[in-house]
Amino acid sequence: MARKTTTRTAKKTAPVKPPPCEPCEGSGQVAITVRVGRKRRPVGQQDGICLTCFGTGEADS
């Protein structure tokens, strides 16, 4: 008895999305404390680029 062979199509997998960066939580920006005066007292915060992911918001593996 002859066996029937069929060609199977390769299943496409979804691209794997890297996890979000932990320090910036995926936003790409972190809060940096602004210090002023001779005693360098903190007066507020401003947004700065995340140095862990360089603003991409994705964690490196």
Score class of each variant (00 low, 15 high):
Val16Ala: 15
Lys4Ile: 13
Ser27His: 05
Ala14Lys: 14
Gln45His: 14
Cys50Gln: 03
Ala10Asp: 14
Arg3Thr: 12
Pro42Tyr: 04
Thr56Arg: 01
Ile32Asp: 01
Asp60Pro: 07
Thr33Pro: 01
Ala14Asn: 04
Ser27Thr: 15
Val30Trp: 06
Thr33Ile: 11
Lys12Cys: 10
Leu51Lys: 11
Gly57Leu: 00
Pro15Lys: 15
Leu51His: 04
Cys21Leu: 02
Thr56Cys: 05
Ala10Leu: 14
Arg35Gln: 02
Gly57Cys: 00
Ile32His: 00
Val34Phe: 03
Gly55Phe: 09
Pro19Met: 02
Val16Met: 07
Ala31Ile: 01
Lys17His: 03
Leu51Asn: 10
Lys39Ser: 15
Arg38Ser: 10
Val30Ala: 12
Arg3Met: 03
Asp47Ile: 01
Thr5His: 08
Gln29Phe: 04
Ala59Cys: 05
Ile49Gly: 10
Cys50Ser: 06
Phe54Lys: 02
Lys17Val: 14
Gln29Thr: 00
Pro20Gln: 03
Thr9Gly: 02
Thr9Lys: 15
Thr56Trp: 07
Arg3Gln: 06
Asp47Met: 02
Pro15Glu: 11
Arg3Tyr: 10
Pro23Glu: 05
Asp60Ser: 06
Gln46Asn: 08
Thr33Gln: 09
Arg38Glu: 13
Glu58Val: 00
Arg3Cys: 14
Gly48Met: 06
Arg38Ala: 12
Gly44Leu: 03
Thr52Gln: 09
Thr7Trp: 05
Gln29Asn: 01
Thr9Met: 09
Gln46Met: 07
Thr6Tyr: 13
Ser61His: 12
Phe54Ile: 03
Lys4Cys: 14
Met1Asn: 10
Ala59Glu: 02
Lys17Arg: 09
Ser61Leu: 05
Arg38Val: 15
Glu22His: 01
Ala10Arg: 14
Asp47Gly: 08
Cys53Lys: 00
Val36Phe: 07
Arg41Thr: 15
Lys11Cys: 04
Gln46Lys: 15
Lys11Ser: 09
Thr7His: 10
Cys21Gly: 06
Pro23Asp: 11
Gly26His: 11
Lys4Met: 12
Leu51Phe: 10
Ser61Thr: 03
Lys17Tyr: 04
Gly44Val: 07
Val30Ile: 12
Lys17Ile: 13
Ala59His: 03
Cys53Glu: 01
Arg38Phe: 14
Arg8Glu: 07
Arg3His: 15
Pro23Ser: 09
Thr33Phe: 13
Glu25Cys: 10
Ala2Gly: 05
Thr13Leu: 14
Thr7Asn: 10
Ser61Phe: 14
Thr52Ala: 09
Lys17Phe: 01
Pro19Ile: 11
Cys50Phe: 06
Pro42Cys: 02
Asp60Gly: 10
Thr7Glu: 15
Ser27Ile: 01
Cys50Tyr: 05
Gly26Met: 05
Phe54Asp: 11
Pro20Phe: 07
Ala31Trp: 11
Arg38His: 11
Arg8Gln: 12
Ile32Thr: 04
Thr5Glu: 12
